[in-house]
């Protein structure tokens, strides 16, 4: 079937099987490789994107379910080739190690900083609970996102 998706403001149209997952459309059809597959079951958040402004795990959705919605991936969080505030802070504080989780923490961190009110460590910890970092013990990630969100 024909699937037409709007990702980071660009329309992509392709003839695909109905069973194609959103994450595979993003990676293999749109060629946006920053969204990763870590677990296939919604456990890790490496595939996280914004769908009409809400964070979703793109391995848990069919591509066709995202038709007519605005999809933002890690590549679309800022202006061309830049980093948004959350991404810039994660980079400056050396919060990430292997980097495979970058989409997850960038997307959810951005959403928290823009949407959560009265931010504290605990709220951020709970907000990040769907995204796995296997390297860092989360400490610098939590502190960095809390700091950005507080200044938002």
């Amino acid at each position: 079937m024909k699937i037409k998706l709007n990702i980071n403001g660009t329309d992509y149209e392709s003839e695909e099987e109905p069973r194609m997952l959103l994450v595979d459309f993003i990676r293999d059809v749109a060629g946006l490789k920053g969204t990763h597959v870590g677990c296939e079951t919604g456990s890790c958040g490496a595939c996280m994107v914004l769908l009409d402004g809400m964070p979703v795990k793109s391995c848990l959705m069919l591509a066709v379910q995202a038709e007519g919605k605005k999809i933002i991936t890690i590549e679309g969080l800022s202006e061309k080739n830049g980093l948004n505030k959350v991404q810039k802070a994660l980079s400056e504080k050396k919060a990430l190690q292997c980097g495979f989780c970058a989409a997850g923490f960038s997307i959810i961190g951005t959403w928290i900083s823009e949407n959560e009110k009265n931010i504290d460590d605990k709220k951020v910890k709970e907000g990040l609970a769907g995204v796995v970092c296997r390297c860092s013990g989360y400490d610098t990630i939590i502190k960095t996102i809390t700091e950005v969100a507080k200044n938002e």
């Binding site: 990676r27 946006l32 490789k33 920053g34 969204t35 990763h36 597959v37 991936t73 890690i74 590549e75 080739n81 980093l83 991404q87 994660l90 980079s91 400056e92 050396k94 990430l96 980097g99 495979f100 970058a102 989409a103 960038s106």
Partner: peptide, 19 residues
């Protein structure tokens, strides 16, 4: 600032499934 981390945060890594 690490160029490598910046690359990952831009979604421009080159992990094995990206090749």
């Amino acid at each position: 600032m690490s160029e490598r981390t910046e690359k990952f945060l831009k979604g421009k890594g080159n992990f094995i499934d990206d090749i």
